[in-house]
Nucleic acid binder design. Structure first.
Lengths: 222, 222
DNA sequence: GCTAAAAGTGAGTAACCACTCATTTATGGT
DNA sequence: ACCATAAATGAGTGGTTACTCACTTTTAGC
């Protein structure tokens, strides 16, 4: 099977989420748990079946291959992570010129994605891990980003640059700084050091402030 | 390849083992190549043996288990990545109060680690990937960081804060912003989008400037 | 040039792998 | 109550896995 067939399959399974058999749901649930913990490659279908309380054959009744099981887990995460990046009511205001402030846009963005990551850690661990070895996932992610996230982000950045609120870097660079800072914060917060007694509100404030004003002492703020 | 560079370094420093037999070296070199490409778990020892032009038994003569092979690849990388973070001649000047400038410290840091990453991509890919599933690697990395990197970094940050050059965040937060920005840049540059025609000098300059002054328009620079 | 240790070999092994299929069980419309 | 269809099963399949071991070859000191 080639990459395109897999991608089609990805979308299909992602769409019909409500029509799941109880056993099917249990299989997905268990697979997510074990994949996140041990990785896709070193998880066996027999282990999933055993822990899900299901016969091994049942897995292959619903998912043609082990790889298809992985993709039906990962594929919905991609869209659910990327699409709402700019789907809030708030962001639309930006493009009606009612919110001339990159800082407030950032705040909405971070708060929004913070909650999402918080509620989907195992899924995001799997996505992060398996993207490296499955070109189909990489491709799907890249497509979704290019289509759903980048254009709006780009538009917003250019708007704020025009209004003299943002530095005149290439907008790709600004997007990169913004995203690596946010993602870096979220990965540190939820994956690298989840047990360090974080004061989330303070750290979010500092992250926003860092993005806007950097690490040098403040001479330009009121 | 980069694998060879790594092996040369290993021999030069002469960590634990005096010298490697040619076959042993070829095994390591080949394992690095395949691990980086397909991941540890989905690489078989027979595949390594075949590609290295060696009998499978030879692998297990030198490395007790497949896991030991992984560790003898990964553990030198940890120290090689972390230790020279503050081992340059330049950094010592900082602590003799001859260089009162976080910006210059950043530049040295980034240039230094930029070259290292550039020359060790497969090794760092393996480290990044396998850290997630091998607590031994995580622990080793954490120890090295806490012992070799953090204390000096912390001292430097506090020194510059005292001199009024750096914002009064907790130094852990400043270190986190600095590192996620640098690592985020390096990952984007060498792993996520290595083929985008980067102007490295410019991007390094912007990265440093972003760290210091953020994304808002410049009011405070000379 | 002898010899003992070290390096290298590859067929063999038990466990495990993803996946199949003939068969049994559950479901829902009439 | 009947039956067509879908869901679920688990023993079985051929292939692969990490690792072993009896054996051969190479190396190095005298």
């Amino acid at each position: 099977m080639n990459a395109k067939d897999y991608l089609e399959q990805l979308v299909k399974v992602g769409e019909k989420e409500d029509e799941l058999t109880p056993k099917q749901a249990k299989i997905l649930e268990t697979a997510i748990e074990i994949f996140a913990e041990k990785g896709y490659a070193s998880t066996s279908t027999s282990e999933i079946a055993k822990k899900a309380g299901v016969a091994e054959g049942t897995i292959f009744r619903h998912f043609k291959t082990k790889k298809e099981l992985l993709f039906s887990i990962v594929s919905p995460v991609i869209t659910k992570f990327a699409v709402p990046f700019f789907a809030t009511h708030f962001v639309n205001q930006v493009f009606q010129e009612k919110t001339p402030d990159y800082e407030q846009l950032l705040r909405k963005l971070i708060m929004n994605r913070f909650e999402f990551v918080k509620n989907n850690i195992p899924l995001l661990k799997i996505l992060l891990q398996e993207m490296a070895f499955h070109p189909e996932i990489q491709q799907s992610f890249q497509e979704v980003f290019r289509r759903e996230v980048f254009p709006k982000f780009d538009e917003a950045v250019k708007y704020y640059q025009k209004n003299g609120k943002l530095i005149a870097y290439p907008s790709g660079t600004i997007i990169r700084f913004t995203m690596t800072t946010i993602i870096g914060f979220l990965i540190t917060r939820f994956i690298v050091m989840p047990d360090e007694g974080w004061k989330d509100d303070e750290e979010i404030d500092r992250t926003i402030h860092f993005l806007m004003y950097g690490l040098s002492i403040e001479k330009s703020k009121d």
